[in-house]
Design a protein around this nucleic acid. Structure first.
Lengths: 136, 136, 136, 136
DNA sequence: GTGGTCTAGACCACC
DNA sequence: GTGGTCTAGACCACG
């Protein structure tokens, strides 16, 4: 094999009883793996059938996830060859991360504001909720 | 009229194309109104049929929203008389608010962590995003 | 019925033997109808099952077409209500049209250039191929 | 070597992620080279195995491309000797070029018509898009 | 072997 | 009734 394969490090987990559609769970986990650098440009993704078998879901479900990820620019698929992590510039990657976190954060800020929770109290909440880095 | 009615101030808005179910949109907006004090104990809610007509949705949908709000303790319904904002202690109200904000906030913290965004950078984001109070 | 329905004017045609996937044929024809103004904002599209039955294809195939059209911003779908032509500003509509035609045209220009066909000869071809408007 | 070989000037490029099949990409690029005169009658094409190695694709894929090109009359293959550019009369060559450009052009004309873009506006687009010849 | 497309039939929440 | 999701099994072109 001349290509890195993600199979070893890869652990996709499915919750069948979740509200979140299975294909969304898969998309989210691959996105995460790529954005955290766990999977890198050129790495191969599991084949449709292989992953479908592993996760015990339909091939169509995996296909849908891969298709969406390709449209989002995270992977490229080549018929007859497989699916691979696409090239994403580090710049745009960092932008994507910050944008996603900002969006989520903005939701909670808006909620806090509508409830009349003060800036200071809100920051205090973070102080309690956000874990401090561990020291070596 | 011997009862305060919320109809004047009340503006429920429906987005048919949203993913959020219509009855959830309605519930959320009433909850918000009650928690922010816009609607207060004893205020009457619009009748099922009136609101259904206004929002151009089915009576069944409004009924489902009212039923849920009653189960959550935000309103009480009296057959033949209508629905009214229930008594909610200030204590439990504040608890509910904090809990909701905490939940939302926790989501963004988890996201930030998974992307390796530091505590300091996260707090900086809030500094930028959370508007400062206006001076008198 | 308070909503315009597209059923009367609507004629989607499927070529099963074509190379173009069925869902692409459907997408293309609806896009066309919307961009030419045949279908307008708020008009309802046929229901998944109804159109599937009419065209004798699977519901999934129609669903895929509608999904894609929604992502492209041509229609909005609301679970339990149906699919409707989305609001598209006349400005952006004209931009879309011009952009699409420009893209196609650019392909033929590039081909002509690589074959050493002159500007003048190319324009002559259009003179022959593009039908003149009929006179009243 | 007694025969001109195209290997030096030749640069076939493969896009694995393209929708266009690899063998079609190869065919298209050889056709182009022959029609533009870059490759001429009698020039040798790379051997199956050599090109397959260079492009990192299967020999079967290259073979299919060469077979098709032979059917189209662009090359001749001689078992054990290799593949060579065939004799193509200037007349038939020019015809082929014009036919290909016409086909592409017709597509954009049909698109423009369906969008109600006028003859005049279409010709204006070409005026803008088709680069003028450079002056000596 | 691979991905791309399609089918028929099913279940769900929502209206 | 509606759209949204999922399944199992199939055929195709491509490598």
């Amino acid at each position: 094999m001349t290509e890195r394969t993600a199979s070893d490090r890869l652990t996709v987990v499915i919750a069948h009883q979740s509200e979140e559609p299975i294909y969304e769970q898969i998309k989210r986990q691959f996105r995460q793996s790529i954005m955290t650098g766990l999977m890198q440009e050129g790495d191969s993704l599991p084949s449709l059938r292989q992953l479908a078998k592993e996760l015990r879901v339909s091939v169509v479900t995996i296909n849908r996830a891969y298709e969406d990820l390709e449209k989002e620019g995270f992977i490229v698929t080549a018929a007859g060859r497989g699916a691979f992590v696409a090239k994403v510039s580090k710049e745009s990657l960092k932008d994507k991360k910050l944008k996603l976190v900002e969006e989520k954060l903005m939701e909670s800020i808006e909620l806090a504001e509508s409830y009349g929770i003060s800036r200071a109290d809100f920051i205090k909440m973070i102080d309690l909720l956000f874990p401090r880095q561990k020291h070596g």
